[in-house]
Amino acid sequence: MIKKIPLNKVKNLLDDLSGDYKVFAPVKNGRSIIFDEYRSDKEVNLEKFSVTSIKEALFPSHEAMIKYDYKKDPSDLSKTSLSLKSEVNFDKTVIFGVHPCDARGFFTFDKVYAGNGYRDVYYKTKRDATAIVAITCANPLATCFCTTVGGSPADSEGTDVLLTKVDEFYYAESYSEKGELLLKNSNFSSPQGGVDNEQVLKIKEEAVQKLDKNFSTEGIENKLLKIFSDSDYWKNATSKCLSCGICTYVCPTCYCFNITDEGVMGRGERIRSWDSCMFPLFTLEASGHNPRARKFERYRNRINHKFSYLVIRNNIIGCVGCGRCIRHCPVSLDIREVVKGVID
């Protein structure tokens, strides 16, 4: 189904949708644009690149897995009862205004959390109830490299609706039933025939051409394994890294988490919160030994995980080329350079 919507009606659309769905959109928060739940008092910005990725919507930075409560019996203090509560309920969700690369990010999550092996109920229920509305990325940035890792700025894979901006309109194409349902909203109108269609195609093609391929990913998984023990290479490539967690936390595919019990006096929650392989604490063992104590080992793991282990195990490159880790890195460490160095 193809529909169109004028730019000035997007706000109406979001207001409409937020009645029936939980809506996530890139909103202005202070000086930054981040993905957050949409409310009508928030300013949506669909033009710029958000700092955080949309993984927050399906994989929140922290979520309660269990709520626990130990209660003492007032008449017999030696008796303690424990109540456990685990809730997995999720509202229908629309993630609006993402870039196609962000939408592809969930493929990695799907393989790991909803693939043939383990099924993560917290992720899977949300994933099934979520529709994604992406926007063709007409002006990719210098840090973008989605075409290198198999994506495209006009990619419809993984999206339910793809919007393309033409002059004063967004053209909306649906790619699934969920998408068609969204397009039934009254703010969309039908486009007038083939002219627009051609324009949309042209914009998409131009966008793709704006990006160069940085490197070839063919056989990269084995090349990485071969260079694994060349610690000089990794040391040189990562010596400037600060070991902060920005790259992993803004990444749309980084899915590692930590589980902790947070509570006081026998009452609290077991939460799962984002963790980052860039922190030395990530792999610190109870014995005191740390298998990845040095930062080049940690960074090597991040690259290997994305470009080698995931490829071998799940046949997917764990990087969508959104370039966030480059853009927001405090020392401008460029993942493309590091991977390119491996290939050469």
Partner: peptide, 29 residues
Amino acid sequence: KEFDRCIRCYACREACPNCYCQYQCIAQT
């Protein structure tokens, strides 16, 4: 409002020359 959007990446800590507690930083212990 400001801290609402913090993602707890600890970049502030790692970029600070004075913050060298490493494993012992109570933010994560």
